[in-house]
Nucleic acid binder design. Structure first.
Lengths: 231, 231
DNA sequence: TAGATTGTTAATCGATTAACAATC
DNA sequence: TAGATTGTTAATCGATTAACAATC
């Protein structure tokens, strides 16, 4: 018996761990800026507010990045996590919808540092079409098909009105886009081989509301609550 | 021995459950729109892609909303979850930063349906100050202190540049704002009694990148990867 | 009543934490 | 070498799932 297809035996890393990686990356970036060369799991633990044990467990899902008696080399670990997250992958992304949210995304230069290059923006608003954001031209949505066929597009960021979202999502998926980043408050599902991340901003706001309630025992002046017919 | 202060004995509901509530709320809202009057945990389970058992467990953290042999009344459950999330709490919110993201937030009318009313927008850009978004005037950031003292403000949504974020966050917290919703890619921490929710959009994008890599085995044409000095 | 489906307890699974031998 | 700190196994904790008695 010999090794099968490369790395198919590795146990799949849990999503809980993967979701923590960007946070590690952020803290390591801060350490780099502060010119800190090495860090122990203990020290990182106290900065991040998670246990040292968890840090070591998490990192060891991907390999032994540290050194006994020394800790972790900040720059090395930073680069390794960057690699794991695929930050030098040079993904090509487009933004569909050039309203406020689409423009905010287009202006968020950080995405490029994270390996996502925005190569096109699309909208139906003819007064926007022809203009550009940071040099990226805004095209009419009608050009979506031809553009994606002529340019390699990995990811579409969807910042269109709620009702339009499933429609443009399907168009993008049909064209072979591999990932969708959806900002409409719905759980987008498609019968295509595409990875979908739903953002759900207002869900987060509602959780904030819940926490406020819990902590400060709100119920503001109980103003005309109406209680209209709850069974 | 008798009952202590009201409901201080209830076991604290775990954050995992609370985070699922907005999603239940969304699905129930959809059911209402489709004029579906009642739903069993089984049926909801298949729609949402989680187990019926989990649905019943989750809901029973807050009380028995269903009826044996019948299921759940959609409208009743919808309203109950809305109450739990404090959607009729009439929170007063302000937006600090009227750039693209701030404007996107200001135009997102859904927040009002979720119990958050935006009563003010602040920026330092004098060409924006004096204008308004959906009738909400944009004020100069200098007016923040006087405005918050004169108007009840529960939550500040922070959509300012990275470097400004800790500064305006501290100003808001000092003024007694109870919740902060932070859109800068940092873990905001403050020595005040304030609840902070950090959004971290690009963290989500990086997780999408990781999943793309995992599924499609990326490594695009290995274009001039440079490999500049990783250790 | 019989059938359906909840509320709730018990079993399982997975993730976090603790502990410690390996080793730099 | 002695001290420090990792990598990793084992123990604990919490969350999810299964099962079923209660009951509409």
């Amino acid at each position: 018996m010999f090794w099968g297809v490369r790395m198919n035996l590795k146990k799949k890393v849990s999503l809980a761990v993967v979701k923590r990686l960007p946070r590690y990356y952020r803290y390591l970036s801060d350490l780099l800026k502060m010119d800190i060369k090495r860090i122990s799991s203990q020290e990182l633990s106290s900065r991040m507010g998670i246990t040292a044990s968890q840090i070591r467990q998490d990192l060891n899902c991907f390999g032994g990045f540290g050194q006994q008696g020394y800790g972790y080399n900040v720059e090395f670990l930073f680069n390794e996590i960057g690699n794991i997250l695929g930050l030098n992958n040079d993904y090509h992304a487009i933004i569909i919808g050039a309203g406020n949210m689409g423009q905010a995304l287009a202006n968020y230069t950080n995405f490029e540092k994270r390996g996502f290059k925005i190569i096109g923006i699309f909208d139906v608003n003819t007064s926007l079409v022809g203009t550009d954001i940071r040099g990226i031209p805004i095209r009419h949505l009608d050009e979506l098909e031809s553009f994606v066929q002529e340019n390699y597009v990995d990811v579409a960021m969807l910042a269109v009105p709620f009702e339009q979202t499933p429609i443009v999502a399907e168009r993008a998926a049909k064209l072979g886009v591999k990932g969708l980043w959806n900002f409409s408050p719905m759980d987008l599902k498609l019968p295509y081989d595409v990875i979908i991340e739903n953002v759900h901003l207002s869900d987060g706001l509602m959780v904030l509301g819940y926490k406020l309630n819990e902590k400060f025992e709100f119920i503001r002046e109980d103003s005309s609550k109406g209680n209209d017919g709850n069974s």
